[in-house]
Amino acid sequence: MSAIRYTKDHEYIRINGDVGVIGISDHAQHALGDVVFVELPEVGKTLAAGSEAAVVESVKAASEVYAPVAGEVIEVNSAIEEKPATVNEDPLGAGWFIKIRIADTRALDALMDETAYQAFLKTLD
């Protein structure tokens, strides 16, 4: 089973060995509202932790998606560029953004697990 970690900016990274699948949390997609545009990085791009990995736009506004940890982009989900609503419908599944090769998996320790993230969300209400 793969582990999932979250950032305070509401990105998630689902971990499989040294590969991480990055997207935005259900809370984030709900807060954004209807997603109408996604801009994804080039495959091969090297992302620093906290750097801009993608752009997601709702009807109202544009937001950045930051890399939870450093790594190299190995795949992007072009399907959400064609059908951005997938990000709302299935943020943790079909609505993923990018896959990265994680530079140093120890960096994941600084992120929140599911329990910690749910507790963090409660502090935002």
Binding site: G33, D34, V36, S58, V59, K60
Partner: peptide, 12 residues
């Protein structure tokens, strides 16, 4: 109100 649970696209 910015939007209702239906969402901006559906309301539009």
């Amino acid at each position: 109100p910015v939007q209702y649970p239906t969402g901006i696209l559906a309301e539009h």
